[in-house]
Amino acid sequence: MSAGYNGRMIRGPLKFMALGALLLGAANAQPTGEWRLTSITDAGRLISVNAQVAPTLRFDATRVSGLAGCNTYTASYAARADLLTFARVITTKKACPDQVLSLEERYLNVLRGVRRYELRGRTLVLHAGNDRMEFVQGGRVSDVTQTATRYAGAWELAGVNVAGRALNVQGDRPVTLTVEGARLSGNAPCNTYSATFGVVNGAIQVGPVASTRRLCTTDAGNQLETAFLGALRAARAFELRGEQLVVVARDGTTLTFRRASGSGAVTGASLEGGWTLRTVDDRAPQGPRAITLNFEGPQVGGNDGCNAFGGTYRVSGSTLRAAGPLPQTLMACPEPADFPSLTALLRAGATFSVNADVLTLTGQGHTWVFSR
Rank of each mutant, 00 (worst) to 15 (best):
P13K: 05
K15V: 15
M17D: 07
M17P: 11
M17A: 15
L19E: 14
L22T: 08
L24T: 04
P31L: 09
T32K: 03
W35D: 11
L37M: 00
T38N: 02
I40M: 02
T41C: 12
G44L: 06
L46Y: 08
V49K: 05
R58W: 03
F59C: 07
R63W: 14
C70I: 08
N71Q: 02
A75V: 02
S76A: 14
R80I: 15
A81T: 11
V100S: 05
L101C: 07
L101K: 01
S102T: 01
L103I: 09
E105C: 06
Y107V: 10
Y107C: 04
V110P: 02
R116E: 13
R116T: 03
E118S: 11
L119K: 00
R122C: 03
G129N: 04
M133G: 07
D143G: 09
V144E: 05
A154Y: 01
V160F: 11
N161H: 00
L167K: 06
D172V: 10
D172M: 14
P174L: 11
V179I: 06
G181Y: 11
R183L: 11
L184A: 08
G186Y: 06
N191I: 09
A195N: 12
G198P: 09
N201P: 02
I204A: 13
I204T: 07
G207C: 11
P208R: 02
S211V: 07
L215P: 08
T217E: 14
D219I: 09
D219P: 10
A220G: 06
N222T: 09
A227G: 14
G230N: 00
A234L: 01
F238V: 03
E239I: 03
G242D: 02
L245C: 04
V246F: 00
A260Y: 09
A260E: 01
S261Y: 15
V266W: 07
A269R: 15
S270V: 08
L271P: 10
G273M: 13
L277G: 01
T279A: 15
T279R: 05
L293I: 01
F295Q: 08
G297C: 06
Q299W: 11
Q299V: 14
G302Y: 03
G305C: 03
N307L: 03
V315K: 02
G317A: 13
S318L: 04
R321F: 06
P325C: 00
P327L: 13
M331D: 15
M331C: 05
P334I: 02
E335A: 13
A337Y: 03
T343L: 11
S353W: 07
A356S: 15
Q364H: 08
H366N: 10
F370S: 08
